Amino acid sequence: FDIYVVTADYLPLGAEQDAITLREGQYVEVLDAAHPLRWLVRTKPTKSSPSRQGWVSPAYLDRRL
């Protein structure tokens, strides 16, 4: 999967189903980028939180090589 970094805090609107909150600087794996406005991502697990999966706007993501 492609690795992206979150460029700004992402707080989903209440109406968005299956969306997750992301923090600036967080790394995520993009699982599904087929839709231009919503990408399915999975967060990297940390010592304090397990990995999470949900939909985010790709405008908040920047690809890492």
Score class of each variant (00 low, 15 high):
F1S: 08
F1E: 07
I3R: 04
I3S: 05
I3Y: 10
Y4P: 00
Y4G: 01
V5Y: 13
V5M: 09
V5C: 07
V6I: 05
V6N: 00
V6M: 03
T7F: 04
D9A: 06
Y10G: 03
Y10P: 02
L11I: 15
L11Q: 12
P12I: 09
P12E: 06
L13S: 15
G14C: 12
E16D: 13
E16C: 09
E16P: 08
Q17G: 11
D18I: 04
D18T: 06
D18H: 08
A19G: 14
A19N: 09
A19H: 13
I20P: 04
T21W: 15
T21R: 11
T21G: 08
L22N: 01
R23M: 11
E24N: 07
E24H: 10
G25I: 01
G25S: 02
Q26Y: 03
Q26W: 11
Y27C: 10
Y27A: 05
Y27D: 04
Y27M: 11
E29D: 06
E29Q: 10
V30L: 09
V30H: 01
V30P: 00
D32V: 07
D32R: 04
A34F: 09
A34H: 13
H35M: 07
H35F: 08
L37R: 08
W39M: 01
W39N: 00
L40T: 00
L40E: 03
L40Y: 10
L40R: 04
V41A: 01
V41Y: 01
V41P: 00
R42Y: 02
R42H: 02
R42F: 02
R42I: 04
T43K: 02
T43G: 01
T43A: 04
T43E: 03
K44N: 07
K44W: 15
K44Y: 15
P45R: 08
T46L: 06
T46V: 05
K47Y: 10
K47R: 12
K47D: 15
S49E: 15
S51G: 09
S51W: 07
S51R: 06
S51F: 06
R52N: 08
R52Q: 14
R52S: 10
R52P: 02
Q53S: 10
G54R: 02
G54Y: 10
W55Y: 10
W55G: 01
W55H: 03
V56W: 01
S57C: 08
S57Y: 04
S57P: 15
P58T: 05
P58Q: 03
P58E: 02
A59L: 14
A59P: 02
A59W: 07
A59Q: 12
A59I: 12
Y60V: 11
L61Q: 00
D62Y: 09
D62S: 15
R63N: 09
R64C: 15
R64K: 12
L65C: 12
L65V: 14
